[in-house]
Structure formats: C-alpha cells, structure tokens
C-alpha cells in the first residue's frame, strides 16, 4: 500500500516536470528595443502640388537639413506618408509609409544590442515588391538616413529613416 502511494507521488512529480518543460517559454526576441519612423518625401524643383492633395508640407528645419546634402537639394519637399514601427530584439519588422499602399516598403531588423544612442540595423528597400537595396548600417537617434529612390512626376521620392527611441 505504501509503495503504491510512493509510486503515485513519483508519477505526479514526473507529470508536473513534463508540463513545466512543455510550457511555452517567453520569447524575448519579441521585446521592443526601439522605435523607427519612416517618412516618404517627394522632392521636386517643379510644382509641389503634383504630390497630391493629401501631401503635407515639410518643416523648414527639415527642408534645410535635406538641402545641406548636395544630392538632396530640391526646391520643394512634401511628405507623402509616414509610418512608425517598433524595432524588435530579434525579429524583423516592416514599415509602409504609404499604408495601405505597398508600393514602397522598408524591412528592418536589429543586428545587435542597442548602444546608448545607436543601433546597427539591417535595412531593405522594396519598390513595387522588388528588393532594391539592402544596407547594414548604424542608425543613431536624431540622425536620419535618407534613401534617394526613384523619380516620380518630375521629382524624386526620398525615404527618410530615423531611429527615434531605444530601450
């Protein structure tokens, strides 16, 4: 009788261990380690209204910052769309500044532990469902990366990528 009782206790202990082992572990890879903002700009020396009625103006500060770079010097800048997405610890994420349009997308993924003000990231620019560029780059907070893309309506589409926070 006593041995049967001991056997039952042992069996219960084994079952508990089995279920504990099978319990879903917390996936730390989904932890948010930062936030990324992608903004699609339309830069042109022509008529800015060609960007469409929904396009928004760019602040003078940002326009001046873009004009400082010779390759981005245009007369007018418009914002076509913006998307803010979390950066996961070990999973990729996608930003679609023209949501719901998927004409222009940015795939991003952290490539290492975040430093105090920067993070190495893997960036991919997708245009019309085709990967156009892949970059391994260190993004710093308050230091945007501008990706000069295709021409459109006499101007150029520029994708701004900025790391706005790190955790």
């Amino acid at each position: 009788m006593k041995s049967i009782l001991q056997f039952k206790r042992g069996l219960i202990a084994l079952l508990c261990l089995f279920f504990l082992a099978e319990a879903p572990a917390q996936d730390s890879g989904k932890d948010q380690v930062g936030e990324l903002v992608t903004t699609l700009y339309f830069a042109t020396n022509g008529e800015a209204s060609l960007a469409g009625a929904s396009a928004q103006n760019v602040s003078e500060e940002l326009a001046a910052a873009m004009r400082r770079e010779k390759s981005l010097q245009y007369k007018n800048y418009k914002v076509l769309g913006k998307d803010q997405q979390p950066v996961f610890r070990s999973y990729e994420n996608w930003a679609s500044p023209l949501r719901p349009s998927e004409e222009i997308l940015l795939r991003f993924e952290s490539q290492g532990k975040a430093l105090e003000q920067s993070m190495r990231m893997d960036l991919e620019l997708w245009l019309s469902r085709e990967k156009m560029m892949k970059a391994d780059r260190v993004l710093k907070i308050a230091k945007p990366l501008f990706i000069g893309g295709p021409d459109w309506r006499g101007g150029k589409l520029i994708l701004g990528v900025e790391l706005i926070s790190l955790k």
């Binding site: 981005l72 560029m133 990366l145 501008f146 893309g149 459109w152």
Partner: peptide
Amino acid sequence: QSGVILLHGLEAI
C-alpha cells in the same frame, strides 16, 4: 546631421 544613400538607375515610377 544625416546620412544619405542615393540609388542610381532605378526605373522611374
């Protein structure tokens, strides 16, 4: 203040 990657040879939209 910023970084720039300029892509050349892309087909215009």
